[in-house]
């Protein structure tokens, strides 16, 4: 396996602009999708943890199941929505990075919602009486519980990041793997595999893995620090 590692290293060392562009795009698409999913999923998951309404159980089951949504299906749905023949065709978003962000947001959202619900539900069981006593209603409790659950929630956000950065099915369909425009690490790996350039494909895989590893290490370190610091 010296070959692919050497290739990976020389690829990075060369600072090849096309590669840097691909890495940059991958990170931008996935991180933006994670941010969007958090902006929507954290409050929604917390609301789902605290709210009581008929059909709540069904909603929870659906979101849990959607965590296993195949990326290709998510991609296909977004593709049909954004296609010129679809309802949002006039936005001309198909085959753009924005379309990829939307598809990945859709993929991560169920993970963020389900994990948030579970974390916040547990916290609420512990905090409910105290918060009510201090004068916080359910609505007001949401940001408090999210903030107090932040270390556990980080795990869910990381899981979402992992899913988005690893998937190829959705971004391939809605992005089109256009060179220099919508080509990401994973679609580039798919392309190089199809070209029989297995060495290059593995090298790209090593780079992707290294990036993921680095981000996870940073997040884990931050979590450990916060745990020690905040109890």
């Amino acid at each position: 396996m010296g070959g692919p590692f050497a290739t990976a290293f020389s690829l990075i060392a060369s600072g090849d602009p096309a590669l840097m562009q691909i890495i940059g795009l991958s990170l931008r698409v996935t991180l933006t999708a994670v941010l969007m999913a958090c902006a929507v999923g954290l409050p929604l998951g917390a609301a789902l943890a605290l709210a009581r309404f008929p059909g709540r159980g069904a909603v929870i089951v659906v979101f849990n199941a959607l965590m296993g949504l195949p990326p290709v299906v998510a991609g296909l749905i977004v593709y049909l929505m954004l296609s010129r023949s679809g309802p949002f065709g006039s936005l001309a978003l198909l085959f753009t990075p924005t379309a990829m962000i939307i598809a990945q947001t859709l993929l991560i959202l169920p993970i963020v919602i389900s994990l948030t619900r579970s974390v916040v539900e547990d916290l609420w069981a512990e905090y409910r009486e105290q918060l009510l006593s201090l004068g916080a209603g359910r609505l007001r409790a949401v940001p408090t519980l999210l903030w107090d659950g932040r270390v556990s929630l980080l795990t869910g956000v990381l899981a979402g990041f992992g899913r988005a950065s690893a998937e190829v099915g959705a971004v391939l369909i809605v992005g089109g793997n256009i060179a220099g425009h919508t080509r990401t690490m994973t679609t580039a790996i798919t392309l190089e595999t199809a070209r029989g350039q297995l060495g290059l494909a593995v090298a790209l895989g090593i780079i992707l893995l290294t990036l993921t590893l680095t981000l996870n290490a940073i997040a884990w370190g931050a979590g450990q620090w916060a745990r020690g610091r905040l109890g």
Binding site: E126, Y127, E129, Q130, L131, S133, L134, G135, A136, R140, T144, W147, D148, R150, L230, G231
Partner: peptide
């Protein structure tokens, strides 16, 4: 509601500083 308070057997303190815990109900 504002004129009462309760202290529990096992108090729930928020994951923030002592001062911030005192501030929390006042902000509410």
């Amino acid at each position: 509601a504002e004129a009462q308070a309760m202290v529990f057997q096992r108090p729930v303190l928020l994951r923030r500083s002592v001062a911030a815990n005192l501030d929390y109900p006042l902000a509410l």
